[in-house]
Write a protein that binds this DNA or RNA. Structure first.
Lengths: 345, 345
DNA sequence: GAAAACAATGAGAACGTTCTCATAGGGAGT
DNA sequence: ACTCCCTATGAGAACGTTCTCATTGTTTTC
């Protein structure tokens, strides 16, 4: 009884068929309908308070205007802005977004692929929890991969050029005359083997003819919750800063760890940046709010999400054309944001 | 041709009708179906790789298993954890979540209400952008209001007891012998008129027989982007800290502002906590990562989302029962997290 | 002036489920 | 043996759209 009006009600009210009503309401520009008819439909819809049922439309047209984004954890400071970037782009074009958190867990992720298939999204933005995922089960749904790995060669992928970013950090510290540079890494996540960071670290030493001291490489547990990781990093960092020949500078592979360095240094009475320079990576909000504010390698999160969404929209609007080309690989440049934790030695 | 198998394909494969297949696949416990039949259906579904079409199911049953959450901005540090709390609860029960950002903009919010109606969500968790919204357009969709206002008396609402939290901060500073306490407020958001905070500030002074110095009340612009607010707060805070009789303690109405205080103090060479105690509010991640770590009034964000989701699920599973009761009003207690920015005078 | 083209609308199938009601089969009660 | 009931299954409508094709009326073309 109290159920909402459907397109047939509108049709009846306007004295037209539902086909015509649909034509008017979907604003198909290429279809001809008399101006007067158009108005009649519009006023009928208005007066009945008609709201189209998206489910029925999607079922028939097999376009849902939903896209799914699968990430590790929305409460990880890296993701909200990324999500926002994607969402702003998508909602402008009438798409809704469903966020799926996988917590770096493969089981969860697999379950989500099922959700994706059941729920019939038009496209997927995927930050893979690991590098060896089988995406074939997603069938023909367009997928954009987030990240900088080459593990999914046949898919479009968009990420930050983290390699170049890490090099940038080392080079900057070198140009500030630092020769004894600590490396703080977060491990345990399947995705970030951190092997490649160590490789860059080695290459950097070799390139500049520096002696590499393995004691300066510090590994920290890195878990799902940022605040936990922050705490757990304290002990290994404390060890690093208590070495008898402690580093004059530290590069941490993410801002959480870099902030942990800052805090430990503060407690040990080591003045930053005068006695210790620190560079983080990511440029999360907390980085700009520390005292002194953290120098960091900025990953473009908002833009990352935006580009992924734009690419997905392209794929959706013209699947054939885009499919012919080679997969898109975008690596956004990382920038050095020099704030207050770096100074010349 | 390549389209996915439907329930009729499964039925044909199993030599049964789609009704029976549906019975098996929906695990209705109260319905009788022979064990052998059940197995036949399951193996048929398995071998065809059948995935149910949620759209069709939703259309027929008018249950979508989607719920919408309307918030101001997912990239505001307050929200990700809240969303996560809700999401964890909902996904456990098979619900997906659609996040809508309104950017404190009424126009956007109104558009989103349309999205909600079109998309036929089962329920809504709503953090209203203002206190005078007309929610009647959402019809009979169950709605949970987030926040601590009494503006929506007929709806369930769940929020933090911010008033008590603010009092807690003042009382703590008082017990630490501070008598000259600055108040840093973030304005401009329609929701947070901050009038009530000033009232509490006045009441506090009166209660303890303290002289109230209007110069100690500082208003900062507070905008959509946390990082912008952080920067914009610097000038007013600097003025506050440069008063000839500057406060010995500061309470800021959110952590972003409190961190800004920390940073400005650091630049001015004011030692925290020895020369200045600071208490923030919110307990965002950045609060624990500052140096020294910020003492703050903790708002329970994860639990807030969790409770909202649980209540919504209750409403959905037994609408009649719950509807009879008076609207639920939950105010979560705020806790004082004493870290490194407070000390006795 | 008849045929052809076009513009505007209508009729009704289709999408893939759920759900209601009907029906077939078999055992229990009398 | 007849009715009754219960269990297991089937037939088909319904959900509210979109989309294809048909139809009507009007204009253009030769």
């Amino acid at each position: 009884m109290g159920s909402r009006p459907t397109i047939v009600h509108v049709a009846k009210e306007a004295g037209l068929s539902k086909a015509t009503v649909a034509r008017v309401l979907n604003q198909q520009t290429d279809i001809s309908v008399r101006k007067e008819t158009r108005l009649r439909v519009q006023s009928a819809a208005e007066s009945l308070g008609y709201v189209p049922n998206k489910l029925a439309a999607s079922l028939r047209s097999s376009r849902t205007n939903n896209i799914a984004i699968s990430i590790s954890d929305i409460s990880n400071p890296f993701f909200p802005e990324l999500v926002r970037g994607a969402q702003d782009t998508l909602s402008k074009r009438g798409y809704n977004m469903i966020i799926l958190n996988n917590d770096w867990d493969q089981e969860t992720e697999r379950e989500q692929f099922n959700v994706i298939k059941r729920t019939l999204v038009d496209g997927v933005i995927l930050a893979p929890s690991r590098l060896d995922l089988d995406l074939s089960c997603l069938g023909t749904i367009p997928v954009i991969i987030l990240g900088n790995s080459d593990a999914y060669p046949s898919y479009d992928s968009i990420g930050n050029n983290s390699r170049a970013g890490v090099e940038l950090a080392f080079e900057r510290l070198h140009s500030l005359k630092h020769r004894r540079i600590g490396l703080v890494l977060g491990g345990s996540s399947k995705l970030e083997t951190s092997a490649w960071r160590i490789q860059i670290y080695r290459d950097f030493h070799q390139k500049h003819g520096l002696m590499l001291d393995e004691n300066l490489i510090t590994r920290c547990k890195f878990t799902v919750r940022a605040s936990d990781s922050f705490i757990m990093a304290r002990d290994p960092i404390k060890r690093l800063l208590k070495l008898e020949r402690r580093p004059t500078a530290i590069f941490a592979s993410n801002d959480i760890l870099a902030l942990s360095v800052l805090q430990v240094a503060n407690e040990l009475g080591i003045a930053v940046p005068n006695e210790l320079s620190v560079i983080g990576m990511g440029d999360v909000f907390a980085a700009s709010a520390s005292s002194p504010p953290l120098t960091t390698i900025c990953k473009q999160r908002y833009k990352l999400g935006k580009l992924a969404a734009e690419r997905l929209l392209d794929l959706l609007s013209s699947p054939e054309i885009v499919a012919q080309k080679a997969p898109l690989k975008i690596r956004l440049a990382c920038k050095l944001i020099e704030r207050g934790t770096t100074s010349i030695l």
